[in-house]
Amino acid sequence: MPSLARIAAIIAALLTGSATMCPAADAPEGRLVEIENPLASSQPLQGYLRQPRDAGALPAVVLLHGCNGGWRQLDERWGKLLVSWGYVTLAVDRFGPRGLTSTCAGGPPPATVFDAYRALDFLVQQSFVDRDRVAVIGFSQGGLLALNSVERGTIERASNDKFRAAIAFYPPCLGIKDSMTVPTLILIGELDDWTLATECRNLVEGRDDYGISRQKGLGVPIEFIVYPGAYHAFDVPSLATPVKFLGHRLEFNQAARDQSVDAVHKFLYATIGGQEKLQ
């Protein structure tokens, strides 16, 4: 029987495959950047930065990968698309500096919870980024980190600069205890058996992990979209043939992916501006 490491490698290879969606042939090339000076941290972050050809200070998006890594593939899948819409993008490598390959067997390491803000701190120092128009988008475990970054609490308060919007693709919602501080969008598959839609619905509707209602009227409302017939990782085209990973089904869903592209575009335009029409 294949080892867990072997299965993880297979999943990573699948995610590396033909993972682009809505290919933007004219998307500007990006570059690998050091998010922090190595002297500033024992684990300096790196990431892949894409910058539109448009002049002036532009809105930007931080991209956070899931528990199996794949930050380069995330850039291919979403970074190219977002930059073609006029957004600066920064796909963060949460694992490389820490020597990690997978954190799927548990939650995100505590050291990673501030990575989104470390990326934000880098972006706001760039002359081509509008510091008041930066959003964070995370996927699976990265989606949890995106939610944590805008949840009212210690992490959100720790940074002088703030995210203006957050999007979480199929995040684990269990354990989110407080309200959101900015407009937030959660996108999840109806049949997701890894990160459950019911748990996210409880969060959105103001109930705690036990279904008990929280205090009403606090925080910014969360927009919530559930895609019928969709499983975990529904936006990854290389998973057109479903796979099982840690007992969970991962499967691309064309309809859900297309609808999520439209939802993300509209949400970003409404919250941080950018191009109004899909290209």
Rank of each mutant, 00 (worst) to 15 (best):
159 S>R: 10
169 F>M: 12
178 D>N: 15
254 Q>E: 12
164 R>S: 11
205 E>Y: 08
222 I>D: 01
211 G>Y: 06
182 V>H: 04
263 A>P: 03
238 S>R: 04
258 D>C: 08
203 L>G: 00
257 R>T: 13
235 D>E: 15
189 G>F: 10
163 F>T: 01
272 I>V: 12
172 P>H: 09
260 S>A: 12
241 T>R: 13
243 V>W: 06
208 D>Q: 09
205 E>N: 14
181 T>E: 11
231 Y>C: 03
259 Q>Y: 01
175 G>D: 12
221 P>L: 10
192 D>L: 05
214 R>H: 05
183 P>L: 01
160 N>D: 14
180 M>K: 03
232 H>A: 07
264 V>T: 03
166 A>H: 09
196 L>Y: 12
226 V>R: 05
165 A>N: 04
168 A>P: 08
208 D>V: 09
158 A>D: 08
214 R>L: 10
205 E>S: 14
266 K>P: 00
195 T>Y: 08
174 L>Q: 10
193 D>L: 07
239 L>V: 06
212 I>S: 07
237 P>G: 09
203 L>R: 03
154 T>W: 08
237 P>Y: 14
202 N>H: 15
270 A>K: 04
226 V>G: 01
231 Y>W: 11
272 I>D: 02
154 T>S: 07
269 Y>K: 11
173 C>A: 15
151 E>R: 09
198 T>K: 14
160 N>G: 11
237 P>E: 10
232 H>F: 09
203 L>I: 01
246 L>V: 07
177 K>Y: 13
239 L>W: 11
238 S>V: 05
232 H>Q: 11
229 G>P: 03
262 D>K: 13
152 R>Q: 12
166 A>I: 04
197 A>I: 04
149 S>F: 04
188 I>K: 08
269 Y>L: 10
178 D>A: 15
191 L>R: 14
257 R>S: 15
260 S>M: 13
234 F>P: 04
157 R>V: 12
234 F>K: 02
244 K>W: 13
235 D>F: 05
272 I>P: 02
188 I>Y: 14
256 A>T: 08
235 D>M: 08
243 V>H: 08
268 L>T: 11
